[in-house]
Design a protein around this nucleic acid. Structure first.
Lengths: 94, 94
DNA sequence: TATCTATTTAGAAATATTTCTAAATAACCA
DNA sequence: TGGTTATTTAGAAATATTTCTAAATAGATA
């Protein structure tokens, strides 16, 4: 979506932990929820924030909704941070 | 300080723009403020959030306070994101 | 079809964030 | 010293975020 949304999404510890869980592969909303001491509704809210930020995408199978990490947006933020660190003109060349 | 504070600090567009300004070198609080249509008090608040997140540090000279980007914390977040992307076990080796 | 399971939506309460104005500090200079 | 400039602090108002409970939806199965 936008850097604003992406960084906002990353700014919450629950959402960062969800992303770490998804690092190992896709999980259903319920599986994600079982890692937290929170209602399914709250997890659903956080998943929606991550989805709007394009940090995860969902696929539906039977009556489950599976969430998966979207690596490409993580790469985009890394690019932004890399620019901040030094800009292209400072890339080290040997 | 912590990832929580760092990402929270990065989640605001004004603060991200301040960081981009500081990319070119240190600036006083007033110089930073002149780039925005906001009161000095508001800029001071944002600088304080960035400072608490260790994204900037300040040095005082005369009656000015200069702010400078702290690259090392930017690098730490990039490390976290890099882990998220694939973890050490996935680093490409040729 | 009826009902059970998984998940989301709606709405409300508590808390946090962002911004302002006005006042306080702190250091400079005439 | 007294006044000017740069910046921060305090406190308040507006808005946004996070969480819950209860209800709604959607699909699966008996």
């Amino acid at each position: 979506m936008s850097f604003a949304h992406t960084f906002k999404a990353l700014s919450d510890p629950v959402r960062r932990e969800i992303l770490v869980l998804l690092k190992r592969g896709r999980l259903s909303a319920g599986e994600i929820g079982s890692h937290f001491d929170m209602t399914g509704a709250t997890i659903s809210y956080h998943l929606n924030v991550l989805k709007k930020a394009d940090l995860v995408f969902e696929t539906k199978y039977k009556n489950y909704v599976y969430y998966e990490l979207n690596v490409s947006v993580v790469e985009e933020i890394m690019m932004w941070l890399s620019e901040l660190k030094g800009g292209t003109e400072n890339v080290e060349r040997k």
